[in-house]
């Protein structure tokens, strides 16, 4: 994973999905993922239908196909993970050329592939149409624990600061040692981690001072209520479609 640039996730636009309140999109994403996970592995048609439902969301969000597929490719490491399954699974086996592949393993690989792809697709639609602060504000409005969203907010805010700090420290060490081997990297990482924690702590203290200086008294003011419409009706219809597919698949399996 090379980039932690949360803003790169966002695709600027003014589509109906962009202009939907973030809490609605969060609920929709989780509901869709639940439908995907509940769908039995072997009902292949159902995954096709779910993909079509996801495609509707991608279309409404006016996301270019190339952008969507590129963002989808971040799941690739797991695809490789899934590909191992036919080789380690138990029988019955099927002969493909000279290979003997486990049938449950093949279905398992399909299961991970299909479900991970659809779920990541749903999360891509969310993060591509919603700025990160909006997503956090959406969780606040959904009554997620404030401590959790507050910590997540600080984490995302300081991610790039910490990553670039870490990069500078590694560069400084590499400059003295020459190019680092992987093994030296590990040693470097170990020595740097402690220093970085102290820096993180001291930054935490300074941020807190800056908060106190502006009248902080224990609660972070919430984001203003959304100017964006909730449009629950359309969203619920979309969610319902995915649930109907899942239910039908469960009944026919």
């Amino acid at each position: 994973m090379s980039g932690v640039h949360a803003h790169a996730l966002h695709y600027h636009g003014h589509s109906p999905v962009h202009r939907l309140a973030s809490e609605v999109k969060i609920v929709a994403m989780f509901a869709f993922v639940a439908a995907v996970i509940a769908t039995p592995t072997r009902e292949v048609w159902a995954f096709g239908a779910l993909a079509a439902i996801l495609a509707v969301a991608v279309g409404l969000a006016e996301l270019p196909t190339a952008f969507f597929l590129k963002r989808l490719s971040i799941e690739l490491p797991f695809v490789i993970f899934a590909l191992a399954m036919p080789f380690v699974g138990v029988g019955p086996y099927v002969e493909v050329g000279s290979l003997s592949l486990s049938v449950p393993g093949l279905w398992g690989a399909w299961n991970v592939l299909a479900k991970a792809t659809l779920s990541v697709g749903a999360s891509v639609v969310l993060s591509a149409t919603t700025e990160v602060p909006d997503i956090l504000a959406g969780f606040d409005r959904l009554r997620a624990p404030r401590l959790l969203t507050a910590i997540a907010g600080f984490m995302i805010r300081y991610l790039e600061v910490v990553v670039s700090e870490l990069g500078r420290v590694r560069t400084a060490i590499a400059a003295r040692l020459g190019n680092l081997s992987r093994r030296q990297e590990a040693a470097t990482l170990a020595s740097v981690a402690g220093t970085m924690f102290i820096r993180a702590y001291e930054r935490g203290e300074r941020i807190h001072q800056a908060m106190l200086a502006r009248g902080y008294r224990g609660t972070i003011p919430p984001a203003a209520t959304p100017a964006l419409p909730a449009r629950w009706a359309g969203t619920v219809a979309w969610i319902a479609a995915s649930w109907v597919v899942a239910a039908a698949a469960i009944l026919t399996s």
Partner: peptide, 15 residues
Amino acid sequence: HIPLAGVTAALIFAL
């Protein structure tokens, strides 16, 4: 502890 926890989370993410 809240900003501290956030910055530490960022650090663990980075590590």
